[in-house]
Simulated assay, not measured.
Amino acid sequence: MAERLFLVDGHSHLFRAYHAVGYLSTSRGVPSHAVLILSTMLWKLIREERPDYLGIAWDAPGATFRDRLFEEYKATRAAMPADLAQQLPYVRRLFEALRTPVVEAPGFEADDVLGTLVARVADRDLEVVIVTGDKDLLQLVSPRVSVLSVVGRSGERVHYDAAKVRERWGVDPAQIPDVLALMGDSIDNIPGVPGVGEKTAVKLLAQFGTVDRLYENLALVPGKLRETLAAHRKQALLSRELATVSRQVPIDFDLEAFRLREPDWPRLRALWMEMEFTRL
């Protein structure tokens, strides 16, 4: 049986932890709820899934190559809440105490780090599980790569293989960037083509396969939709570039460094005591 490498989308998990419960703080007034829930989530993952290898992908501070392509990329997102920013040093201490490597690269997002790590182990006898709530990462699903998503406040776990991606989106994993190129993504402020929603995007891709082939055969698209697509061709192609995960991030990678190890219990207990967590 192949060993399993679990790769956690760090910021996706962090924000989910932050919004999972109301504000909590220590008796000293230090915000603590994101650290508490993130600790619970990661420990639950380790205990229940027992991965052979585990790593966390993180968004490096600063602009990315997507910001250079499109100034308005993610412009609609609010700044990180101050009480969450205060917890970041404790989150870093949590990762260190769990002895889980964190991978980040200036100029790239965690998505790109994940895509690159998947590419780096493509020739290994490994099953890769990406733990994220980000639909963009479904494009990485393949026979040896799946996505584990935890949905909403219910905590429902959805395991995406290629069949599950097709069931949910109506396209193959590799077509996810093409879907987003047409319908856009309000979360990341990817513009897409005005007036083209998910159903129309999926229908077009069922007929043409890719955005490139769609534009090569635009004469086959009827009426007003053809005019709209023609008028926003550059925007559609830009949107696909924004939605495509890079697999060429310049990072060092040593698989053995990701092997799951016993936590540094003294450091972990010290962190939990400092944060006044009594039920972990």
Rank of each mutant, 00 (worst) to 15 (best):
R261E: 12
A206S: 15
Y18W: 08
K234A: 14
I130L: 15
F208V: 06
V141H: 12
R166K: 14
D264T: 00
R16N: 01
G184W: 07
E3G: 08
S25G: 15
F108T: 03
V141M: 07
A75M: 06
V150W: 09
E104V: 00
R261Q: 14
W265I: 01
V211R: 03
L126C: 06
F6Y: 12
E256A: 04
A82M: 04
P173L: 00
S27R: 14
E241C: 03
V118F: 00
F70N: 01
A181H: 01
D264Q: 01
P263F: 01
Y90F: 15
D264M: 00
A110K: 03
D112L: 06
I130K: 05
E241S: 09
D112W: 02
R226Y: 10
V150Y: 03
G197V: 11
A230W: 07
R16Y: 00
H33G: 13
V193Q: 13
D67N: 12
R92V: 00
T200D: 03
G184M: 07
R259S: 10
K135F: 02
Y18A: 06
D83H: 14
W169C: 05
G170L: 08
L255E: 13
A2I: 02
G22C: 06
P89I: 01
M183F: 05
I37C: 03
D185Q: 07
R213V: 00
R157P: 05
L69W: 11
L148P: 07
D112T: 09
A34V: 04
V102G: 01
R226P: 08
H19R: 08
F6T: 02
L54N: 04
T76E: 02
